[in-house]
Amino acid sequence: MLWQQLINGLTQGGTYALIAIGYTLIFGVLEIINLAHGEVFMVGAVAGYALVMLLGWGLLPALIGGMIGAALLGAVLEFTALRALRRKGVSNLAPLISTIGLGMVLQNVMIRVVGAEPLPFRVPLAGFVLRLGPLQVTATQLVVLGVSLVLMIALQWTLSRTGLGRAVRAVSENPETAALLGVNVSGIVLATVMLASALGGAAGVLVGVSFVSVSAVMGMSYGLKGLAVIILGGLGNVSGAVAGGLLIGVLEALTVAYGGAFAGYKDAVAFGFLFLVLVARPQGLLGQGAAVTRRS
């Protein structure tokens, strides 16, 4: 039973990690929290749903379609809510509010388009179950876990091995120096926001597949979980986001399975645990320094 719960938790945690990576990438280069990220995730999910259920695409093309849709939305986000606020003297509270505003628009436009009710999202692989001794792994879980892993590895490879990744890391280290060294900073910022949004969109499609439903209001709760995960893992830290996501997924699964009367507290697990960790280790599990004010 424990192993079964671990598998369920890891599947869920994989999607948390994908969402969290989106936050952490943007924080890495811009030092802001993009509060529209949950809604980008939702738009990706609904786009994937539309491609599969209305156009009859397969899961993989729909996943890619959802990612492209979310990436385009990321470009919209950059040009409307972020770029204009990136000048000297603007407090870092402003992007917080502008992204909330944009998120509000996205969510309510989507409610007008598809309604607020959950939409059933069925993909053909739902019936298949793999049995390994006492363990049951559904095909959906395999796909969700597999795709999450592939995307995370691809991201890690892009960041560490390609020219784009080097430029992203340079901008996140120090934008002025990067610009002096010939990096096109606004181009890299745009690319990062689009990449982060694409990962959010992928997470949306995967969550839609694993819960067999999508809805216009699914963004909020996942967006908040993602926030808890990045702080847990340490801001701007991709491996921290992955570790934090998987950890929260597993802890939630265990709470539901063994928590008895406390199963209803599942949604407090992420934040409650985060709270304890921050009090003991303010920079997050894998973060380094920076979160705590220096004391003289």
Binding site: N92, A228, I231, L235, F271, L274
Partner: peptide
């Protein structure tokens, strides 16, 4: 805690 860390920790309290 500072900045965003504090914001999210206090959000954790609220949630």
């Amino acid at each position: 805690l500072r900045g965003v860390y504090l914001a999210v920790a206090t959000l954790g309290f609220t949630q």
